[in-house]
Design a protein around this nucleic acid. Structure first.
Length: 313
DNA sequence: CTCCAGGACACTT
DNA sequence: AAGTGTCATGGA
């Protein structure tokens, strides 16, 4: 049994009490309300976010940090604490859209996680045309079947978790076997194997796509070269896995708020590639282009919860 | 039995 | 190049 490294991190300056973490869609409010802890894997390590008192986040992890400062730096980066949420929306947004501004206030502390690129790549390939519940189930199955199994002791009780599978592992999987994890969809299974093979072979170098000097469009084209990845999924990978906070994914929900909140003409028309790029251009005139995707995610969660009354978890 | 769920793609104009 | 129909699958 491994021991858990426990520490408390100062997260002063971040409204983390009202945070919604996405990709893995974590809401501290949700867990706090049910008196549950947030369990998340990062690589082979388990992280537990236990409590928040004032500005102190108490976490436990299986990862061994040689110095406490390293731990703080790691968590801060993962939670994108360095991003000042007050700068996400452009100056004057509150005056142009007072109603929206008021509605999104409880969501202004939302942080986008800097997650592992490969994990995000596969996760969003599973998201095509399915509901959140099934999406999350797929990821859970993938980890259980192809990830590494770990058991640690938490408060005297054994706790088992699975890491997200490595590219090589998924690349070697058979479609017939993998489809059991992809909602029985064989095409999706093949696409995932193909993407994993590209990453494993080095043909698709995810790390290189993080480079801010590489134009966003160039990075997107490289992702879209993979069968099963279109503009929307590529933008999600860029935003959540490659830390490109300017990437603005447009799905059915985003289209709805683009039309309703921002009166963008064409948002309700069919989402062709041309229209997709048009809508991105339109919203970039409203939001801060450098953080369009980050801000968009706040709008996204607010729309789903406050307007559509959907549960994201 | 329909319709939907955080799209992608092949196939016509 | 741009628009339109098809695909795939479990769950509500």
């Amino acid at each position: 049994m491994k021991d858990l490294y426990t520490t408390t991190i100062d997260i002063y300056g971040t409204d983390i009490e009202h945070s919604l973490f996405s990709g893995q869609s974590f809401s501290w409010d949700y867990y706090k309300g049910k008196k549950r802890k947030y369990f998340g894997t990062i690589g082979d390590d388990l992280f537990i976010f236990e409590s928040i008192e004032n500005t102190q986040l108490t976490t436990r992890t299986t990862r061994k940090f040689f110095q406490a400062e390293d731990y703080v730096e790691f968590i801060n980066h993962y939670l994108s604490i360095d991003i000042d949420n007050n700068l996400l929306f452009p100056e004057g947004f509150n005056r142009c859209y007072p109603d929206i501004w008021k509605l999104i206030q409880p969501y202004m502390g939302t942080k986008i996680l800097r997650q592992d690129p490969f994990e995000v790549l596969i996760t969003f390939m599973c998201a095509q045309g399915l509901g959140m519940k099934i999406i999350r189930r797929q990821i859970s199955y993938l980890a259980k079947k192809y990830g590494k199994r770990f058991t640690v002791e938490i408060d005297g009780e054994p706790f088992t978790y699975f890491s997200f599978p490595a590219p090589e592992t998924l690349a070697d999987a058979s479609p017939e076997s993998l489809r059991l994890c992809t909602n029985n969809n064989c095409i999706r299974a093949k696409n995932i194997i193909g993407a994993a093979s590209s990453v494993a072979s080095g043909q698709l170098d995810l790390e290189s796509l993080k480079d801010p000097d590489m134009p966003l469009e160039t990075a997107r084209e490289q992702l879209c070269a993979q069968p099963g990845i279109g503009y929307k999924i590529a933008d999600c990978i860029l935003l959540f896995g490659l830390h490109r906070f300017s990437a603005f994914p447009i799905d059915t929900h985003v289209r709805q708020y683009l039309a309703t909140w921002f009166s963008i003409d064409g948002a309700l028309q069919s989402l062709t590639q041309k229209n997709y790029l048009f809508l991105q251009d339109q919203i970039s005139r409203v939001l801060n282009p450098d953080f369009a995707g980050f801000a968009g995610h706040i709008l996204f969660h607010c729309w789903r919860k406050e307007v559509k009354h959907l549960n994201s978890y």
